[in-house]
Write a protein that binds this DNA or RNA. Structure first.
Lengths: 221, 221
DNA sequence: TAGGATCCACTGGTGGATCCGT
DNA sequence: ACGGATCCACCAGTGGATCCTA
């Protein structure tokens, strides 16, 4: 692990035990508002606090050192209360996608996990920062994730997108990802015809993220 | 010419001799501001006043009747002070583009020209609406425009985009079209390689638009 | 409980054109 | 005079995720 990544981890450790609200105020950001309408705000605050520079149209939050930042809400037992979104799944070029060069693998190659604590009881501004973890998949973990990826991309590649439900995938699943139910994108059907469907993204199951936070080399289930 | 198009022309005629400011205020819109920062505002006001419904991602301003609205500023002699933007030129599929099915031909198939008068002397809110013209190209005009189109698309198709300057084209030229000089898009070079260049659009020369406003069947130069 | 649905901030691209230096 | 450069409004798409029923 190189020095820059260690420096980033050190900055994250410096935030431990502080509330999200305190971190926000230190950077001149407002922490609050209806939970439904501020879903992404805690993540944006931690990005700012840690100096994420990716902007949009980016592969990583910290492009120089290839690190992705993920804020993950834990309950009182230390268990994630939600799955973790990774990135969008491209539906129209599934045939040419391979795990080694995939967007999702690049995103997961090095992740800085920053837990927020008390997520099942407290509104997000009151939650406190937990122990951060700088994680890269072990070869074994990488292999399991590749299996989930191949399963999904294989289905889409042969036009069987109707069978692509969130039930598939041991650690990584695919679920809808859109602003609302009327958003549509295109994919290929079984006969090669273009069909309209909902955009989807890759998500890590809470079972997996919870396990790796306890043991970075974990292989649950 | 069908009844709906005639009805649109009648609505445009009802605006004659009124100032853009008066039309704007009638629709609750603000007419004013620095000329540099409100370049597209007169056009947007006339769209609203005439009930354009295309929204974005549209082929025409009035999709139901296939009519494109163009606001054109004339000086005291009745001569256009500017060229007229038509649409973007796609740089990456030039080989497959043909005049008959092109976006630019569809745009020009039926245009409602609405002149604004006094453009060389008055700030735009004070300009008055002139005599509108509902125009479709004659077969002869269509042929000249096709020639300009084929010239441009042919050059781009063989990767000679450096030779594509605004000097080309009898009535229709190609010029940069971007928010600022740093915007880039991609095109193919002479060896088939991808190169970065500025986005471009089709424009009608003022020589042509001025002539057709005086005589819809004109063939200047 | 977790699969399917949804919400906000931000931004790049498009459509409305005119500006302005050579 | 006009070829190249630029400006704003608007909107769809992406990245930040969590909400919420069955």
């Amino acid at each position: 692990m190189n020095a820059s990544r260690e420096a980033l981890l050190a900055r994250a450790r410096a935030l431990r035990s502080r509330t999200i609200r305190a971190v926000a105020e230190e950077h001149g950001l407002y922490a609050g508002g209806d939970a439904v309408r501020t879903k992404g705000t805690p993540g944006a605050i931690l990005e700012r606090a840690l100096g994420a520079t990716g902007g949009s149209s980016k592969v990583h939050d910290f492009p120089d050192i290839g690190v992705e930042l993920k804020t993950i809400p834990l309950d009182e037992r230390g268990v994630p209360i939600e799955s973790t979104y990774v990135c969008t799944l491209s539906l129209t070029d599934a045939e040419s996608q391979e795990w080694e060069t995939s967007w999702v693998r690049a995103k997961l190659a090095c992740v800085l996990w920053v837990p927020t604590l008390g997520a099942s009881e407290l509104p997000w501004p009151e939650r406190r920062i937990g122990e951060p973890l700088l994680w890269s998949p072990t070869p074994e973990q990488d292999g399991i994730l590749r299996g989930d990826f191949d399963d999904v991309v294989g289905l889409v590649g042969v036009g069987r997108i109707e069978e692509l439900t969130a039930h598939r995938g041991r650690w990584m699943q695919v679920r809808p990802k859109a602003a609302h139910g009327r958003v549509r994108t295109t994919a290929y059907g079984a006969d090669g015809e273009l069909i309209e469907t909902v955009p989807r993204g890759f998500y890590l199951r809470a079972k997996f993220t919870g396990a790796l936070l306890r043991d970075p080399k974990a292989t649950p289930d």
